[in-house]
Amino acid sequence: MKREEYLIFILEIAGSALIGFFIGSLLLLVLGFDPLKSFSSLIIGGLYDLDYLLSEATFVMLTGLAFSIPAMASVFNIGGEGQVYLGALASLIVAHHTGNILLSVLIGVSVGALVGGLMGILKVYKGVNEVITAIMLNWIFYYITLYLITNIYYNPLAPYESIRVPKSSRIGYIDTPLGRIHLIFFISIITCIITYIVLYNTKIGYSIRVSGLSYKSAEYAGFNPSKNVVYSLVMGGVFGGLSGALKVVGFSYSIDTTMSSLYGIGFDGIGVALLGRNNPLGIIFSSIFYSMLIVGGHIMQIELNAPKELVDTLIGTLIIALSLPYAYRIILSKFKIMRMVRRF
């Protein structure tokens, strides 16, 4: 049974990716681009610079966790965007005032946790749907951040970005045989591993998973499923805040005034989480794949003048394709592939 499940799992991901690329090709053709050239530019461009690839992967890895962990408790955290903005903003401000790395990151993370907690409390104790709170908060934090970096924390020497993070509070990179790699990548990998261990080897992780799969069973077992919902959202907020904090303190060292460096990380995290099937270890791989798409998209734009939003289109299609678990089972059973799978 387990082996069959693995194969279906892989088929699902491969199938979704294929659909995504297929539709993407159609769109490219319609717009007058050569799909093969575009995709090769995408993939090669994506993989060319390892450091860039892994760094971009870091942020969506963390927002992937931000979506996955609440998803384990059957809650949808699409507030990753807002958590990223606020985490970035908070850590920027703290770094500016204190110059301390640890404090900046900690505050960034705590702010994210508060946001998650707010969403959780509103959901559990007031019954407000978390999708609505998330989107509203996303926009509120977007504008708060925008206001602050253009009016108070702006950089007088460079009008297109905020103040820079002081050198003392920057997280740098290390030199490896494969070249220079930003430290933040390793931080996120460790975070994923720790999360996996917590989720599958601790009582609280188990309790959250039970709450997500069967609320009444969790109650029966003496767990407190409502509190677990809040905890999972707090954790989600922590990851979101961490992603924003690391971006500011460990990569771009400032926030640009168009917010383009922060925009979309939260939503991309959703795709990463789905592709990684909500498994922290799977997310490590799916985030690298995703990063390839994003980075490759930039390259594709430069080389072929194809708009990088095309990648958004691909990603959107991928997510829709990933919402169809049963579709694959239905299709598979119809084509009797199941029989083949069983023989393995």
Partner: peptide
């Protein structure tokens, strides 16, 4: 309990 959906987590 009387329900196997409460006393057990069917997906686990």
């Amino acid at each position: 309990p009387d329900s196997r959906c409460i006393g057990l987590v069917q997906e686990m």
